[in-house]
Design a protein around this nucleic acid. Structure first.
Lengths: 138, 138
DNA sequence: ATATTTGCAAAGCCTTTGCAGGGGA
DNA sequence: TCCCCTGCAAAGGCTTTGCAAATAT
């Protein structure tokens, strides 16, 4: 979750820069998922919208999230501990830590994890994903 | 995929040892998923069953696969490149490599990948999952 | 005889899609 | 004007479940 929140104006600009029309719904969702939320699911975005936006359909929530993923303002996280997609405002390379007790996700900086693979020659690695799991104190 | 295939008798014994009734359907599915198949989906197991078993419902396929996972004769693999669960007869610790072209899965021995994490103290790691992705030649 | 398991169909869960109405450029 | 977006409801894909009939011990 980013510590700095974008203003509606900044969000509008970001959307336009990406070639996405800055509709009220999209700006609202951006305000939530880019600043306030922490790895929300579509359902959580919908719940937020129900409280903070006049009226927004679930389809619009999904469409908007998919659009934001397409233009790389957001990234999609699918992890085995949940059947729901989670959305991550961290679009840089990073790993994830799953708190086994709460299911909560934490972003892990790649610098904190060292991975080196020496596979048989037939494997050409293009990407490595690491998912950590355990307890989080505090 | 194991190179050694179990006989129906061995499968029957394995099921009984695990406290699972060795019904014809279960033995048949075991013969496929424990020996012949390579990371099959439930759908693929059903297709195999349709060709090689008098009659088996999809529910039985799912129930049986879940039972085998419960008794640890099989492990469940959920990866982000597919929305379908894949079943793995390798129940030992290992990682996976996804061939980006075919979607095919390869088991990777943990010895071939070195991972070391030095996270902040609040994180107590209980498990590390590594998913590699790239091209496979040959 | 009693407890499990099977098969079928229906339901469940998450996500996508079709289409008509509405709003922005 | 014209195209894109929204909302609604229906559909889609995968998996689970309820229940009655069949099977196992």
């Amino acid at each position: 979750m980013k510590t700095v929140c974008l203003t509606p104006q900044e969000i509008e600009k970001a959307l336009i820069d990406k070639g996405v029309q800055p509709t009220a719904q999209r700006i609202a969702i951006c305000r939530y998922v880019l600043c306030e939320a922490d790895h929300p699911t579509a359902e959580q975005v919908k719940e937020w919208a129900d409280k903070n936006f006049p009226k927004m359909s679930l389809a619009t929530v999904y469409n908007t999230l998919n659009t934001l993923v397409d233009v790389e303002l957001l990234s999609e996280v699918k992890l085995p501990h949940s059947d729901k997609v989670m959305y991550d405002n961290n679009i840089h390379k990073h790993y994830h830590f799953i708190d086994e007790e709460s299911g909560k996700l934490y972003d892990i900086d790649p610098d904190e994890v060292e991975v080196s693979a020496r596979l048989k020659r037939k494997f050409k690695i293009r990407d490595i994903k690491v998912v950590l799991r355990g307890k989080v104190t505090g």
